[in-house]
Nucleic acid binder design. Sequence first.
RNA 1: GGAGACGUCGCAUAGUCAGGUCUAGUGCGCGGCCCUGCUAAGGCCGUGAGGGGUGCAAGCCCCUCCGUGGGUUCAAAUCCCACCGUCUCCGCCA
Length: 427
Amino acid sequence: MIDLRLLRENPDAVRASQRLRGDDPALVDQVLELEARRRSGLTRFEELRAEQKGLGKQVAQAQGDEKQALLARGKELAEAVKAAQADADAAGAQLDEVAMRIANVVVDGVPGGGEDDYEVLRHVGTPRDLAAEYGPDFAVRDHLELGERLAAIDTERGAKVSGARFYFLTGVGARLELALLMAAMDKAVAAGFTPMITPTLVRPEVMRGTGFLGAHADEVYRLEADDLYLVGTSEVALAGYHADEILDLSGGPRRYAGWSACYRREAGSHGRDTRGIIRVHQFHKVEMFSWTTVEDSEAEHARLLAFEEEMLALAELPYRVIDVAAGDLGSSAARKFDCEAWLPSQQRWLELTSTSNCTTFQARRLGVRERTGGGTRAVATLNGTLATTRWIVALLENHQQKDGSVHVPAGLRPYLGGLEVLRPVGA
RNA sequence: GGAGACGUCGCAUAGUCAGGUCUAGUGCGCGGCCCUGCUAAGGCCGUGAGGGGUGCAAGCCCCUCCGUGGGUUCAAAUCCCACCGUCUCCGCCA
């Protein structure tokens, strides 16, 4: 939810943000007009209501004819109050409807434009030249081929049991996922995050409050019979965790690391990434979530990005960091950095982590505040990925060896009983 | 699945049966000041959230919120309905 006070006091900043995102700046003026209307309606209601309350006290003490007269006046007032309230409510509903369509104000420095207008901030590590290492005849194996040889991934039976975009992680595949997630959790705990295992079914209010029922409502599974939603990330549950609370952030950010299954319908991506486990309906993820003051949010964003990069270093993956363009941020984020690992089989970059600074946008809708000298104000929320099932894709492909075995990064070995190499089964 | 109890401004609780002086009382906690050479104990004052008006400002005034949403009434914490949540007992399953 956009800050109406900011919008009133500095409409140009919001208009500029809208333009950078490719959204309509005229919405700002609509909101200003509707807000003025709601306020005048509210004032009328409050005046009438004050009179009604005063009258109630007189009625209680009056007798006889005087009382009858007051009751008659009261009846009139009751109707006027009801009408004024209906007016004010209607104006408020219109205001909300339009205000909801305004996305968060982007942070200074975010590149303008859409999906392809990201800015590459840096490259870390160098993608291997497999042809140089193993000879020009070497055929790069993709993660599914590698995974099947290792008896680690079974998409055929996943489809048999649950349909397209489902899979079994088997044997060393299952262990590899647990290793990645455990390593992520350990890293988070060391950095002061509170580990959390979160609900994956949430109420409609929570799903709406976190902004996932907006433009991307199609992506979300809904359980009709129980009116619950399956989360696409533990961010949903973690954001809802402190809903309607006043937090004390004087001791620094509140940091949580959520471990959960994630569910996505992938409604708009028919035909994309259909092979293997790049794009699936269900996966696991360890997600960082921070509550900070607005002033500290950009610094915290840099810290979350740094934690992600530490995990990528632990997995020994070559990657690049991009500053996502304004038009591709989604409504809640004011800035977003993605880390993309190299995908040898497709000679392209694949998103492994994404960290967003939502400033006060999400917290305002969720009613999460902090105390200040005068009163309270909305806090900032940030989130970022530490590990997901998808990391297995990058791990297998980047660490493949000539014979189809896979090198295990030193940082993951403690979580795999010391395994240094994953070897094909039955070969 | 069946039966019942409950949900009040951080926590605990009064108020609900008999609607109007509830402008929601009290205790604890918290903050300030006072007393006391330290400490213990004590005294006084203040202390929920959201919104609006007014003022240079300290402040003052008004409205909303008693789990949520409806309804009855001149008037609802209080009466009625639905929903959500918590607890107890019974049944069933593990």
